[in-house]
């Protein structure tokens, strides 16, 4: 395994508020990493910094050996740094297949609309949306819109995929379906960063967990270690919850 993405002391201040403070970590190719933290910890801001939505206030982002700290979002997309949004962002009046084809054509670097369209249908089959390929994106249900976001990102042929709360708003059964899909994506060799509130989800899927609190990285490592970290318990989990999760883990 080799390193694909590295953050070096990445910081972001909005006026006087420091949203992200000197965050450093590295991702290996093919890893699934969970990024957790309380509301307002700076998780989404961090995704925005990595993909060029906000300019950095300090530090460096290195992607595949290249300094990409000053990239624009469309450049990130073309390089293979894809992300999904917490609030889904379809092109509402286009069909589902056109939505995905946009990802293939612009982010995936395909030459023709024909080729992009074919690629889009393959990705729709992969995420299980081929039966609604020709309906307008606006008519999809929420779980399907989340799948559409995934298909659109996958069509961009990403090396790293940042999933910003893809499970928010889904019920238990839908979450299980989404997790299965994320595992399938990881099998394709795509590095995945999953931002998530549901601890159960993060623990079941991540090989490694990063914990963000007040814009700072307070812990990082295998799920079990992170659960026992005093600072994580204090800042995020609470003592009771940490004990319960650990107990459940031991029974399993």
């Amino acid at each position: 395994m080799s390193e694909i993405l590295r953050l070096e002391k990445v910081s972001k201040a909005f006026g006087g508020v420091t949203a992200v403070n000197e965050v450093s970590f590295a991702l290996e190719e093919g890893e699934i990493v969970g990024l957790i933290g309380p509301n307002g910890a700076g998780k989404t801001t961090l995704v925005n910094l990595i993909t060029g939505v906000h300019p950095l206030s300090g530090g460096r982002v290195v992607f595949a050996g290249q300094d990409v700290s000053r990239q624009k979002p469309y450049e990130a997309a073309r390089r293979g740094l894809a992300r999904t949004f917490q609030i889904v962002q379809p092109f509402p009046e286009m069909t589902v297949v056109e939505n995905v084809a946009a990802g293939a054509l612009f982010g995936g670097g395909l030459r023709t609309r024909q080729a992009a369209s074919e690629e889009a249908r393959r990705e729709l089959a992969f995420v299980g949306l081929d039966h609604v390929a020709d309906t307008p994106a606006a008519s999809l249900t929420l779980p399907n819109r989340k799948r559409l976001e995934l298909a659109k990102s996958l069509a961009m042929r990403p090396k790293v995929l940042l999933l910003d709360e893809v499970n928010a708003g889904l019920n238990a059964a839908e979450i299980d379906g989404a997790l299965e899909l994320i595992r399938k994506i990881a099998k394709r060799g795509i590095t995945i960063v999953i931002i998530e509130h549901l601890m159960k989800v993060v623990l079941s899927i991540s090989q490694r967990i990063l914990v963000l609190h007040h814009g700072e990285l307070i812990a990082g490592g295998p799920p079990r270690e992170v659960l026992e970290d005093e600072r994580v318990i204090e800042a995020y989990l609470g003592a009771k919850f940490a004990a319960r999760i650990k107990a459940e883990g031991m029974h399993a």
Binding site: T51, K72, P73, Y74, A77, R78, A82, R83, F85, Q89, P90, F91, P92, E93, M94, A102, G103, F106, G107, G108, K152, M156
Partner: peptide, 14 residues
Amino acid sequence: CIHQNEDAADMVGV
């Protein structure tokens, strides 16, 4: 794409 959702267009590489 820009017409329908400019942020999303940016994110898919336009």
